[in-house]
Amino acid sequence: MFRNVTNVGFTVLAVVGAIVLMEVLLYLFLHKTLKFRKALPIVLIAPAVIGIAVLILYPIVYTFVLSFSNMNLSNLRVSSGLSHSIGQFFTNIANIFTVPILKQQYFFPILLRTMLWTAIQVTFHVSIGFFMAVLLNRPMRLRGLYRALLLFPWAVPQVIAVLAFRGEFNYEYGYINTILGYFDIEKIRWLTDGVWNFIAVNITNIWLGVPFMAIILLGGLQSINPTFYDAAEIDGVSKFQRLTNVTIPLMKPVMVPAIILGVVWTFNNFNVPYLLNQNELETTDILVTALFRAAFLEFRIGFASALALIIFLILLSISLILLKVTKPDIQFQSEKKRLKEGETL
């Protein structure tokens, strides 16, 4: 164990040293040799750019390349028939829409379900999170305790929380079914009935996702200057108007990025729908879980890569539309002006 401590310690020092060294040398090179005026910002973003390029962008490009291939279990390597071609790319894309992605389900029903899932999740996360944030924002006793308890799920590792919920939805032993049993109401088949399973997955993810949203919204609420409310009070507006005219517009810069990231993360949430659905009900699968099954249970890798690309494009367009519609303007409009000032500084 102590060997690891020293090993990791030295490696960390070496990595940090390498980063710093690289930055210094890059700066000297750009600034002294090339006389480049913006040497400092380039140097500052260099480590992030290199890291993201290697660890995130390169794999994405690689996935793109794989979508031009016929890679599957019998054509895993060039020696055994792996080939890349533009024709194969179109075949892969065409297969997404014409061949079942799962055993029986086609692309569009799964896409619709994914959209429904994302819409349900984001709506509940934002509305419950907002409600929770408003309650926690009130000055009252025990606020610290409530806050700690309510934000608790965020600290529990997701995989473990999902396993706990799988137990809660058990037919015989689950929490809700046990209560239903006391009242002699027919128990619910959370894990074997398609519709109920989808509901169960949704409940689990709401439980998991609300705290994070609540933290962010609470931050937004706390920053609102009370004088805005005083002004509103003088104008004699109703509580509801105060919410729609004062609170929500002021929180937009916090909410919009949170919602966009929430949409992206929910759309691509793998753990919750996959782990909760151990019975592999196709009616609970969303696009990413279907993708995983195609890629790693059946090893249709060329096909799955093309599907990943489609998912990427869908998300990109959703995000761009959201950005257009919501216009998180407070930040974005002033940006040009701000940067100009920065240049002259």
């Binding site: 070496a14 390498a18 690289m22 040398l25 002294k32 040799t33």
Partner: peptide, 18 residues
């Protein structure tokens, strides 16, 4: 020239890490 030496030095330093 100086910078080229520096760049070379940089690679020498980083290589063992990787």
């Amino acid at each position: 020239m100086k910078s080229k030496i520096l760049v070379f030095f940089l690679f020498v330093c980083i290589l063992p890490v990787f």
